[in-house]
Simulated assay, not measured.
Amino acid sequence: MKATVQKIPQRHGWSWRYKIFEEVVKSEDWHTHQEFELVLHRNFQGKSRIAHFEGLIEHNDLLLLSPGTAHSFESINSHEQTLCEAHVIWFSKEWITKLIYSSVELRPLASIIRDANKGLKFSTQTAEKVYQHLNNFDDLTPIGQLAVLIKILGELCADQSRTSLLSYASSAEKKKSDNDFGKIDQVCNYIDNHYSSEITLKKLADYMYVSENTVHRWFIQHFNESYISYLTKLRLNHASQLLLTTLQPISIIAENVGYTNRSNFNRSFKKYKGMSPSLYRKQFK
């Protein structure tokens, strides 16, 4: 079965991404993406499938997977009283490579990044330390959160009992997904370059030489949302940055991110951010 290529949405102003998934039942989702994934599973038992490896997930299961490694996780028994937790950190190869190169203190991390292509599993003790570092994570500033990530990477380096899951680095699945990566990158680059203008689903489909239904299916498969939802979030995230980093009038910012109607912009922004653009600027600038 071919893995679905997932596009991990990056927040503007951030170099990496952290997200918590809490589910009553975790269903299997065979997928791959272009980022490293550090995933911590808690409070459930399940099955993991990573390239040609299959194994069990126990409480405090901590794994590091390299870009292009197909994987899925599935709960095999759970209770509604205790939700399945997955704490996931994604970061790009380019970013972590530059970080290691420019920081001598992080050089021990190089071997871990290299060995992640075989799938690394860390001790439950390290997993618990990582979880403790993530407590109150959302209350921290972006710099504070980055400092926590550095501490977590330090915990990975200190773990001398880490093991590899794969007997060899799996490249076959990665090669099969290269075309998908290129296709998704092409879509994202087009939207990034044209989000301020009117880019309908038909225009994007014509650019990619496919049908509108095909583009719609790509977004559901690879982005886990519709094209309109993706475009709206992109525009509003750019608007958020402009509100905080410029003195441009809100009407001009709305036009710059593709809204021709100020009322529609205000309504969409409030729905997405929970407050009006003017209040967002006043509260966070």
Rank of each mutant, 00 (worst) to 15 (best):
R162I: 09
T82N: 05
V130F: 03
S167D: 14
L243H: 15
R162H: 11
S167N: 13
A51I: 14
H31Q: 08
Y272I: 10
K93M: 07
F53K: 05
Y168S: 13
F223M: 02
S72I: 14
Q248Y: 11
Q125D: 03
S66W: 02
F122D: 15
L99K: 11
S229N: 01
Y259I: 14
Y259W: 08
F53S: 01
Q6H: 03
P249T: 04
H12G: 08
V187W: 08
Y190N: 00
E198W: 00
I250N: 06
R107W: 12
Y168V: 09
Q125T: 03
Q45W: 12
I57N: 15
G55P: 03
V187K: 09
S211L: 06
K121I: 15
V257K: 03
A70K: 15
N77H: 06
S278I: 06
M275V: 12
Q6D: 03
L242Q: 15
S27Q: 12
L242G: 10
R114W: 12
S123V: 12
L63Q: 09
L156V: 14
W14D: 11
A172I: 15
H79A: 03
Q283P: 08
A127E: 13
W30R: 13
N43Q: 10
L244N: 04
R262M: 04
S263M: 07
S251M: 02
V257I: 13
A158Y: 11
I89L: 04
Q248D: 09
Q248C: 07
M208F: 01
K19I: 05
R217V: 05
N136F: 10
H59I: 07
K47F: 13
L62N: 08
D139E: 15
Y259C: 14
S72G: 15
I228V: 08
T4L: 05
F137A: 01
I113T: 07
Y131I: 01
Q160C: 03
N77T: 10
L247C: 15
A86C: 07
E23G: 03
S211M: 03
T232Y: 01
N256T: 06
W16K: 02
L165G: 08
E105Y: 02
P67M: 00
Q160R: 07
H33S: 01
V25D: 13
L279N: 10
I253E: 06
N193E: 00
R267A: 09
A127K: 12
H71Y: 11
Y168H: 08
V215N: 02
H222R: 04
D29T: 07
T214E: 11
S75V: 08
H216K: 00
S164M: 02
R162P: 13
S276A: 10
S171K: 15
H33E: 04
P277W: 04
Q283W: 07
S278R: 09
A51E: 14
D29E: 11
L65M: 08
N60D: 12
K26D: 08
I228R: 09
